[in-house]
């Protein structure tokens, strides 16, 4: 290797380091970064909680409904939750800017609530979770909305009724 040539090359083509933080650093499109959660599309199956090796994800039942928390400081960005999530309600973003001051360490959380409401059919409290895609195949928009509002028991009944129709 001709090092003089290499030096000349590096002098004209370089530097090869990114000038971060003075300029944004390029980030790959597929970069596996900070977790984002969308309660709108979550089925509440809690698979992500089960497969998370770091124990970063916790679901808690409260008066408001099913609360989701993902602790960014515990997360190891493995993407297991995203891979096993049936609806892509949890997914990794390209964002890797997670540096924070010590005081903020307990607020580095992705939070979401799947609200609790009354089942319009039986009046019992139910979670407003997304309808599992495999159950509502071929449903119309209106049917999906109707189905979604029901409690698990009434959902079962709805499916049976629809089949016999």
């Amino acid at each position: 290797m001709n090092f003089l040539q290499l030096f000349a090359h590096n002098l004209t083509q370089g530097p090869f380091t990114d000038p971060f933080p003075f300029q944004p650093a390029p980030t790959a499109k597929r970069f596996r970064g900070k977790i984002e959660f969308d309660p709108e599309t979550c089925e509440g199956c809690r698979k992500c909680e089960k497969v998370c090796p770091a124990g970063a994800i916790r679901f808690t039942k409260t008066d408001k409904g099913l609360e989701f928390d993902c602790w960014h400081d515990s997360c190891v960005f493995c993407g297991n939750c995203e891979f096993h999530c049936p609806t892509n309600a949890i997914h990794q973003t390209q964002d890797w800017h997670l540096a924070h001051v010590q005081q903020d360490k307990y607020s580095m959380v992705a939070h979401g609530v799947i609200p609790s409401h009354e089942c319009p059919s039986c009046g019992k409290p139910a979670l407003f979770t997304a309808a599992p895609a495999n159950k509502v195949k071929g449903f119309s928009e209106a049917e999906i909305a109707e189905f979604r509002a029901l409690c698990p028991k009434c959902r079962g009944k709805y499916l049976r009724d629809r089949k016999s129709r």
């Binding site: 290797m1 090092f3 290499l6 030096f7 090869f16 790959a28 499109k29 597929r30 970069f31 596996r32 960005f77 493995c78 993407g79 297991n80 990794q92």
Partner: peptide
Amino acid sequence: ALFMHAMQVREVAQDLKEAVYGNRMDLG
């Protein structure tokens, strides 16, 4: 100088991992 050059060459592989798998070390 050779050390830095070898690491610079390796950087191509690192970028490749990041572009395809989303992480420079743990491909998942």
